[in-house]
Amino acid sequence: MKKLFFRDQFSLIFLNIIQLTVMVLVLWLSGLREVSLIFYLLFLSILFLTGYLVYRYVTLRKFYQRLANPIAWLEEVFETFDEAPLSAALSELLKTQHRLYISEIAHANSKKNEHMTFINQWVHQMKTPLSVIELIIQEYEDEQILSIREETDKLEKGLEMVLYAARLEVFEQDFHVKSVGLKRAVEQVIRDNKRLFIKNRVYPELDLSEVRVESDEKWLVFVINQLITNAVKYSAGKAHKIYILEARTAAGVQLLIQDHGVGIPKSDIKRVFAPFFTGENGRIYRESTGMGLALVRDICDNLGHTVEIESTPGKGTLVKLTFPS
């Protein structure tokens, strides 16, 4: 605090030193060389300057304390600094800014909640006609009906991604960590995507025990679903199997999803978790949105899991989902 005060008053002190030096020099050159008188003038000047600095320090002490310790000031933003005009004016300005800031935050939260409500309602409204379409076509097996079914599956997956992306904004209100059977979660994802496996002629091979991990089952199923559907999509026409394995390391239990598909170029591997990044493969597989892996990374961060990707172009990709022990 004292350092800040002297830094602020340095220009005044320096100006007074220059002024005293010039005054003494003028007196000396004018022939007035009485040393005692000169020292007396210097003493009075320094005394007045010191008195002024002490007065300024006392009246602005709280002001400088706040500036020297801004964190403490933030906790007491509505407390007036002191009675000095400059301090009082700054205090009033900060109060006004703080009230405006709080108002803007409240408005932004209100708009975000409205948007979240709209997204939830819209997704559920869109799911109803999809369910009706699926009920209508489930009795038919011709090629055109199968194409319609594939498109409804894509719509359903897209709506699910939109819903989870919206819910991620209020993640802390929408998760419950408990012991989850890893094999059961994977099998659920495989059942939900059986038509995807058949269409792409890519089939899963599992090697999982009955190990249990601490996670939120709903969010975990979504994460595994994104990783498996990516493995199937980028293996189609190149490999007929993806491998879903389990490993135990010092870091904890790992779920490994290995494919032998197109792989990821080295230039893209560091950016695959960035929102909306589709990379070189995204330009070939135009259905890619660039949001799947970004959501996976955000969900894993919130759940305390880690996700890593290793890939060799033309040979395939290995995804490691780690659950800390």
Score class of each variant (00 low, 15 high):
Val262Ser: 09
Ala72Thr: 11
Leu15Glu: 08
Val307Gln: 02
Ala250Met: 06
Ile137Asn: 10
Val272Glu: 01
Leu256Gln: 12
Asp268Ser: 08
Leu49Ile: 02
Leu293Gln: 04
Arg248Pro: 02
Gln138Gly: 01
Ile46Leu: 14
Tyr52Asn: 07
Tyr140Asn: 13
Ile228Gly: 06
Ser325Pro: 09
Leu255Glu: 01
Trp73Pro: 00
Phe222Asp: 02
Val189Ile: 00
Gln173Ile: 02
Asn120Glu: 03
Gln254Cys: 12
Pro129Tyr: 13
Tyr243Ile: 03
Asn109Thr: 00
Tyr285Gly: 05
Arg7Thr: 10
Val296His: 03
Leu53Gln: 05
Gln138Thr: 14
Ile190Ala: 08
Leu318Glu: 00
Lys157Met: 11
Pro70Leu: 02
Leu100His: 12
Phe6Thr: 06
Ile257Arg: 13
Ala72Gln: 06
Gly282Trp: 07
Val223Arg: 04
Val177Ala: 04
Phe10Gln: 07
Ser131Met: 10
Gln144Tyr: 13
Phe273Tyr: 02
Ala84Pro: 02
Asn193His: 15
Asn109Met: 05
Arg195Ile: 05
Tyr234Ile: 01
Gln258Phe: 04
Asn281Thr: 12
Asp301Gln: 09
Gly158Pro: 03
Thr249Arg: 15
Gln188Leu: 15
Ile136Asp: 10
Thr152Phe: 05
Gly314Glu: 06
Leu12Phe: 15
Gly237Glu: 04
Leu15Cys: 12
Asp192Glu: 15
Ser311Thr: 09
Thr152Ser: 14
Glu172Leu: 02
Ile148Met: 13
Phe6Lys: 00
Thr317Phe: 07
Ser215Arg: 06
Val296Gln: 02
Gly304Phe: 03
Met116Cys: 04
Ile190Phe: 11
Asn113Met: 15
Glu76Gly: 08
Lys194Gly: 00
Ser91Ala: 13
Glu210Asn: 15
Phe5Gln: 07
Leu20Glu: 10
Phe277Pro: 12
Ile224Gln: 11
Leu182His: 04
Ala250Pro: 03
Glu280Asp: 15
Arg248Gln: 08
Ala250Asn: 11
Met161Leu: 13
Asp259Gln: 09
Val272Cys: 05
Lys315Cys: 14
Lys320Val: 06
Glu210Cys: 01
Cys300Leu: 11
Glu141His: 14
Tyr52Trp: 11
Leu295Ile: 09
Ala251Cys: 00
Asp301Thr: 11
Arg297Asp: 13
Glu280Ile: 12
Gly158Val: 01
Ile102Asp: 10
Tyr64Met: 06
Phe14Ile: 04
Ile269Asn: 00
Ala294Asn: 06
Trp73Ala: 09
Val253His: 15
Val232Asp: 09
Leu256Val: 14
Met1Asn: 13
Lys266Thr: 12
Lys95His: 13
Arg248Asp: 11
Ala250Gly: 11
Leu293Trp: 03
Thr306Gln: 07
Leu60Lys: 11
Asn109Asp: 09
Leu293Val: 01
Arg191Asn: 14
Thr229Pro: 05
Leu37Tyr: 10
Pro265Leu: 07
Gln19Cys: 07
Ser235Lys: 02
Ile17Tyr: 08
Leu321Thr: 10
Arg248Tyr: 08
Trp28Met: 00
Glu246Ile: 12
Ile309Cys: 08
Phe323His: 03
Gly31Met: 04
Glu141Pro: 01
Glu134Pro: 00
Arg66Ser: 12
Lys238Cys: 01
Arg56Gln: 06
Val202Ser: 04
Ala247Pro: 01
Ile269His: 11
Asp298Glu: 10
Ser325Ile: 11
Phe323Ala: 00
Pro324Gln: 09
Asp192Met: 09
Leu321Val: 01
Glu217Trp: 02
